[in-house]
Design a protein around this nucleic acid. Structure first.
Lengths: 220, 220
DNA sequence: GTCTATAAAGAGATAGAC
DNA sequence: GTCTATCTCTTTATAGAC
């Protein structure tokens, strides 16, 4: 599809930990930064970018705000780091999927994973409109590369599923991809969760069904 | 369904203009306030609540910021007024639909209308997380009542469509309703529009199809 | 009701000591 | 690298004249 410019990738996932010889100091720094990014991730999921303050991040990590700025140069870069982390988790999840499953099932598994992440309060939510944030993101190579790799993987499955007849082949592949991505921030999840009528698991299955089968009655 | 506590309403739409005898001054005030709300509506669609500033609203209307606060007590109330306006337009649209159409087609028409509003840059977007804004909205009787009436109308059509076999009757009606509402802020529209591959009309039809028919291939 | 001018508070970012 | 204290700017909201 459009996004993939090369051949389908073998999905080598970058190791989360650096090589062998790391000094104790460097290790502590990595641990500290991971704690920061984790806090940012949680706060972004809870409040969104605009309502999250750097003071809150510092308080949650338990360090001074000025110390944060020694690690990350701006609030936007904090958010970008959280997005890099999420994309990395997505890559790890994809890498752990059974390689011999049907493409359609791979796609459904990915959608389920994204929705479970949202329900667990671990899916960062960024505003669509903030342009300085967008600039920071598109300039972040780790984020762009990671997202591209995920998109290439999903795009390959989409094309395969359209060829094997399990996905509607009259839909543009890009529409399918975006429709799947949109499940990561689907407001239906939180609204329906607020109704208290369904468990998280039921919710995920219901939304997966509406996404793939639609609202119409199936012809029998 | 859950939302409807009374019998299906006859959908009397409140007239936009007050009765007959209005003083010239009151008329001018109404016109001015309508200009304000219209500007807020546009800015909310373009930037979202958090990035919209009251100064921008004042500049767009062409009056001083302090004058705005003579009409509306807070930024949240400005946004609420814009939402009331949109709900009113939705009610007017619903009232203008042919009464004898199939319930499923009524629902599709409503979804199309919401998406066209978004593509036209006239659908205000509010953050899910802002609690002071939520408080202002739920305390706004015009907004709550209007939204309730729209929901009752749609809910009635959903139940009818499930009974006549055109909507999947194994899906909770509330899930269907929220899934339709979610089309009003569907990020797929803007992302796919940015690709430049489709006209607005094609885009709307594609998303309506994925919403009702799903991504799966239909059994032939 | 509209204006100019300003208050008041919040939040991103930094200075400088240790 | 971490801290306390502070700067600076933006933004909401208001005071007070007309």
């Amino acid at each position: 599809m459009v996004i993939r410019t090369l051949t389908p990738p073998a999905l080598p996932v970058a190791p989360a930990e650096p090589p062998l010889k790391v000094s104790f100091k460097a290790h502590m720094l990595a641990v500290r930064e991971d704690a920061i990014v984790q806090a940012v991730n949680r706060l972004l999921a809870e409040k969104g970018f605009d309502l999250m303050t750097v003071d809150q991040v510092a308080a949650e990590v338990g360090i001074a705000k000025a110390s944060l700025y020694k690690h990350f140069p701006s609030k936007e870069d904090l958010a970008a780091a959280a997005m890099v982390r999420v994309v990395g988790r997505a890559q790890a999840f994809l890498a752990g999927l059974p390689a011999n499953a049907r493409p359609l099932d791979q796609l459904k598994a990915m959608v389920r994973w994204m929705m479970q992440l949202q329900l667990a309060g671990e899916m960062p939510s960024l505003p669509h409109h903030n342009s300085s944030l967008r600039t920071t993101l598109v300039n972040n190579k780790a984020y762009v590369d990671g997202l591209m790799q995920v998109s290439e993987q999903l795009g390959g499955w989409i094309e395969q599923a359209q060829q094997d007849g399990s996905l509607n082949s009259s839909l543009p592949a890009l529409l399918v991809l975006y429709t799947l991505y949109a499940r990561a921030c689907d407001p239906v999840l939180e609204f329906l969760k607020a109704s208290g009528l369904h468990s998280d698991q039921e919710l995920v299955e219901l939304v997966v069904r509406t996404c793939f089968e639609g609202l119409n009655a199936r012809p029998t």
